[in-house]
Design a protein around this nucleic acid. Structure first.
Lengths: 244, 244
DNA sequence: CGGGAACAGATTGTATGCAAAGCTGGCTCG
DNA sequence: CGAGCCAGCTTTGCATACAATCTGTTCCCG
């Protein structure tokens, strides 16, 4: 569900308080509990989580380096605000990076990683099929879809076997946006996404890297287009509203 | 080592101790004072810089997020070790990112940014011209060359006007490698680099983004080839030992 | 009545203390 | 003679205390 950390059992003590704070703050941002521009006061958060400021601070700086949060000297952290232009840029960057990942995956991936990729693609398809007729509004559905979608993309990134690339993608994907985007998708769009997943996975497995890269890029840019429509219409909860 | 940073209790409030520690540690790694695998013990570093452990720790985590340093839980930080394969991957990634930056710069750059770009390219050329016949061994020369080279590349990235991209490149460039690479360059290779700088800058200014991107990519991949030769021939100071 | 200096509250940035997790080396026991 | 274990030291991770900086407001003076 969250990206990056290897999915271990839920041992709170074994993870370290800083990592814990990181997970929780990140999730709060991704799901919109903290909106863009909200200040993240260390004292308040540390009380909320029953920790000291030190690990909270560490988590915040880590989130800063991933681009979810901005720091201003002596003024602390706030959830990053993204303009429509920022979103456009971010998606285009992501398209390039993930296209590259798809190319690499087609060369370096193992059979097992391909199987995992297909499995995620199939599950996504099933979830789309099961979802309601027009718009899937229920948060749980969106979350499940988002998780499966992330899993598909991350499987490919993992198959690419490029650690730094995977690290970068974690910060380029900007999960809040993906979450938002999926919420607005209509069923036909979800089906198209599922189809792109299938085609991309197929190309990767066959070793056709360039094709896989183009498909992946197109897939992501289609997502961008859809999201930009929403943002320009003004209903994005995360961007587009510039007033305090 | 450092040319002029005050280390005493007298300090400017404008920078913050954490940022200072970051700069100094980073420079030490880039120039090889700390080699790959060296442990970075917080206590020792904080004494060295007359600071407390807190800002040092913060600096180390920032360096971790940039990929120069690795943390292992309860064992602290160490300078990251890069295998030859890692270096290859890193350069290819950098090529893609900076190629994209060049494309963007050709569309978004201002006249002023183009002038700065040319200025850096010209200075690089002058410095190459002035340097010794075969191999420039002197650290000062290498450092000057490295600075100018970085300035050229960073000018383009800045002209691209894509904050996240620029942030990513900061961590993809892995300055120690560039430093090492330049040290091994022969004069003819430096001249070729200078020429690529000129051609790339020209393409950017004329708005030929695709060309600029290809040139930039090629320029970086040439650098990669040269560096890989060095690494394979003997262990470069930074890579060569494969144990975990 | 308006501008600005200074004060107060809030919040970050830095320093230090303390407990727990790792590592090292030596000792004991098989 | 070797292997395993225990003790002590090192170093991190977290908590807390303190100092520096910023923001907003009030009050004084022109």
């Amino acid at each position: 569900m969250t990206s990056g950390e290897p999915a271990g059992p839920e041992h709170r003590a074994s993870k370290g308080h800083a990592a814990l704070a990181y997970d929780r703050i990140r999730q709060a941002i991704v799901e919109g509990a903290y909106g863009p521009g909200d200040r993240l006061v260390e004292q308040r958060i540390s009380e909320e989580f029953s920790l000291s400021r030190t690990p909270v601070r560490e988590a915040l700086r880590r989130l800063e380096s991933e681009g979810l949060v901005v720091f201003r000297r002596n003024r602390g952290a706030a959830v990053r605000y993204l303009s429509a232009d920022d979103v456009r840029d971010l998606y285009e960057l992501r398209a390039r990076l993930e296209s590259y990942a798809a190319e690499l995956a087609s060369v370096r991936g193992t059979i097992r990683s391909y199987d995992a990729m297909d499995e995620a693609a199939e599950q996504f398809e099933r979830q789309v099929g099961r979802s309601g007729d027009v718009v899937i509004a229920q948060d749980d559905r969106v979350r499940a879809l988002s998780d499966t979608n992330n899993r598909f993309h991350q499987t490919i990134v993992a198959a690419a076997g490029h650690e730094r690339l995977s690290q970068m993608l974690a910060s380029a994907v900007d999960v809040p946006l993906v979450f938002q985007a999926l919420r607005g998708f209509e069923r036909s769009e979800l089906q198209r996404s599922a189809e792109f997943h299938r085609m991309t996975a197929h190309a990767i497995r066959r070793g056709e890297g360039a094709r896989a890269g183009r498909l992946m890029s197109e897939h992501i840019l289609l997502g961008r287009d859809r999201l930009m429509e929403d943002l320009e219409r003004g209903e994005g909860a995360r961007a587009g509203n510039a007033s305090e």
